[in-house]
Computed example of a mutant assay.
Amino acid sequence: MSTIEIQTIPEGMPRLSRGRHRSAKSGACFMEFASYLAGEAWSDSPQCTDPLLAHLARAVNDQLSDARRGEIARDIPRVIGLRGDHRILAPVVAVRAAAAALPVASDGRQRALAGALLALPGLLPAEVAPRVAATARSALDAAPHAEAWAIDHVRRYPVRERELRRYGCAAAVTLSVTGIAEACVTDPQSLLVALLRDAITDVEDVLSTPEPSGVVREVVAVSAA
């Protein structure tokens, strides 16, 4: 874990801005700045961070306004070194994103997010699954109609684990960030900032626990009890 701390962007360093940049001279997104601090080649997909957490960070970076984007600068050092078993970290990040978005997203998005929250915890090993499932359960309780629809949908059209891993986690993150950004709530940008910070904390917690014994192979639904 990095001990670097950033409260504000130092003078002379690139300001956080939307999108990909060819070099620091034209600005930097969250992950490009992370690649710089990690001593890697300039990239918005550095090796120092789990790919899905990096995807979430880029998405949040791009949805924040220029006036609010600087709030996440101090979190850049936290993602340096957050790399582990992607089969475990990806569902953890995706569940956090979907749980944050479900209560505020539009009806159509809520259904898709509820489906993700029902399925994704089942990808996790027993050592990690309970706390992630608890996060999913709390969010599903806030949207019972979406959960009911998703239970029926998953029963009719089950998703293969391979497809869920290959596409489901990234799709859930993308849908979640967009759903929050476009939600009819007072301050969606604060929700985005909180989501990124919570996801980083989740990954930190997983990586600080003993190595899991293995990945659960069977995709199971979150209990409705």
Rank of each mutant, 00 (worst) to 15 (best):
T174D: 06
D152N: 11
P46F: 12
L37A: 14
P77L: 08
P188C: 14
D152C: 08
D62F: 02
H55I: 04
S138I: 09
S223H: 02
R83I: 14
S2Y: 00
A114V: 06
V220H: 00
G108I: 00
S43K: 05
A112V: 04
V203K: 07
G115Y: 02
C29D: 04
L118Y: 00
I6Y: 01
P14E: 00
I151F: 06
A112S: 10
A194T: 09
A116P: 14
R22A: 12
R197E: 13
A134N: 09
V222M: 01
N61A: 06
R155N: 13
R83C: 12
V206H: 02
R69I: 01
I6V: 13
H21N: 06
A183S: 12
A171P: 01
A105D: 05
R83G: 14
S65D: 14
R58I: 08
H86E: 15
G19F: 05
G70I: 03
A134P: 13
I180D: 02
R156Q: 07
G19A: 10
A41G: 15
V93G: 07
D85E: 15
P121S: 10
H21K: 12
L113K: 05
V128M: 09
L89D: 05
A59G: 12
A38F: 04
S2G: 07
A133L: 09
R109Y: 02
E71L: 14
G84V: 09
G168L: 03
S138R: 12
I80G: 08
P14A: 01
A129S: 11
A101I: 00
L123Y: 00
R165W: 00
H55Y: 10
L64S: 10
V222W: 00
I151H: 09
V60M: 08
R109A: 15
G19M: 10
A221M: 03
E147G: 11
L195V: 12
P103D: 08
V220E: 02
R109S: 09
E11M: 06
A142C: 11
A126N: 13
M31S: 10
R18V: 07
A119L: 15
A143E: 06
E5R: 11
P130W: 10
G81M: 10
P212L: 11
R162P: 08
A114M: 07
V79R: 09
R87G: 13
A101L: 01
A54D: 10
L64N: 07
P103R: 04
E182I: 03
P130M: 13
V215A: 13
A97Y: 00
A139Q: 00
Y157N: 09
V216R: 07
P103M: 08
